[in-house]
């Protein structure tokens, strides 16, 4: 089809939905096509209509289970040129279903988006962060965009229109319970300083060395996937990496961890990275601004003592 038209956005996460308007409005400039947002309720719809969406469709879904809206969304975006979906897990599931229905490509976790020669060009990472690649898609093109990739746009001068559409959901899945994640723990992604521990620690009892240092720095303790998922020494929410948390603290102090690429992709946007490791050849030193080659059991107590509270 050559007359594909319209830019569509959707995220069940309201903050992320608003952020999607920023690249959508840039695509609108490039393509000269209107932006239509899909929303789950009237309040979210009004917000999107007030921030640049030309039109908002409120999906009247029986269950509200986002992953089950694939067929409905594919139907609504029928003639779209570009569809941007918030890169939550629910959003990724939905996007893949929609892309399959439209026989379209889908770029996962797009970091940048542009139009070149009538194609959507998006950048993303490969090999757990070892490489960056550019993917191009003809229309219809679909991309998921992670939270905080783009800022939310300013309020628009004129509000877009809002209308409701009846939406059928996938009735084959029965959701029997939802337990919110216990947020009593710290939010590692908002900590300014992190002391991150790896397998250089010989036992769980030794982690107090990192806890004390983090305390002095007024930071938090994070870890590698192995420490959380294999050893269970720290909760899953504290592990940094491609499948865990992506953090951007001012200081990332990596202790006794080798710096495998799957881990570092979660930490490499830190402002300053410090490494403490006994293995001089550990890849973490290449990724570090400052480092000490030495035994963490000797170095950490000295470092903790040397920092003035």
């Amino acid at each position: 089809m050559t007359n594909m038209t319209g830019i569509f956005i959707f995220s069940e996460d309201r903050a992320l939905a608003k952020q999607l308007l920023t690249p959508a409005l840039e695509l609108k400039q490039a393509l000269g096509q209107p932006v239509t947002a899909l929303a789950l309720d009237g309040e979210a719809a009004a917000e999107l209509a007030g921030h640049g969406a030309d039109k908002v469709l409120v999906l009247q879904s029986a269950s509200g289970w986002v992953e089950g809206l694939g067929d409905a969304v594919a139907g609504l975006v029928g003639e779209a040129s570009v569809i941007l979906i918030g890169g939550t897990q629910r959003g990724k599931h939905l996007a893949a279903h929609v892309a399959a229905r439209l026989d379209a490509g889908l770029t996962t976790d797009a970091k940048s988006l542009k139009i070149e020669a009538g194609k959507l060009v998006a950048s993303r990472i490969l090999y757990a962060g070892l490489a960056v690649c550019e993917e191009e898609q003809s229309f219809p093109a679909v991309a998921t965009v992670p939270a905080r990739t783009f800022p939310a746009p300013a309020a628009a001068a004129a509000a877009g229109t809002v209308e409701s559409v009846p939406t059928a959901a996938d009735g084959r899945i029965a959701v029997t319970g939802v337990t919110p994640v216990d947020k009593s723990g710290v939010d590692i992604s908002s900590a300014n300083k992190l002391v991150s521990v790896g397998r250089g620690f010989r036992s769980k009892d030794d982690l107090h060395l990192a806890v004390e240092l983090a305390g002095k720095l007024k930071g938090e303790v994070s870890c590698t996937r192995g420490i959380a998922e294999d050893e269970h020494w720290l909760p899953i929410e504290r592990y940094i990496g491609i499948s865990g948390q992506i953090v951007k603290p001012d200081l990332y102090l990596a202790v006794g961890l080798s710096g495998q690429v799957q881990h570092m992709v979660g930490a490499r946007e830190s402002k300053i990275i410090v490494a403490i490791n006994s293995d001089e050849r550990a890849p973490i030193f290449e990724a570090a601004d400052y480092g000490i080659v030495g035994d963490l059991y000797a170095v950490l107590p000295l470092l903790t003592a040397a920092i003035n509270a």
Partner: peptide, 21 residues
């Protein structure tokens, strides 16, 4: 492929690499 790779480049991180031994 509907999404085709146009370019692949290694990710480089430029860090100060000041290491004390």
């Amino acid at each position: 492929p509907k999404a085709s790779r146009r370019s692949v480049k290694g990710f480089v991180m430029t860090r100060k690499n000041v290491i004390y031994k």
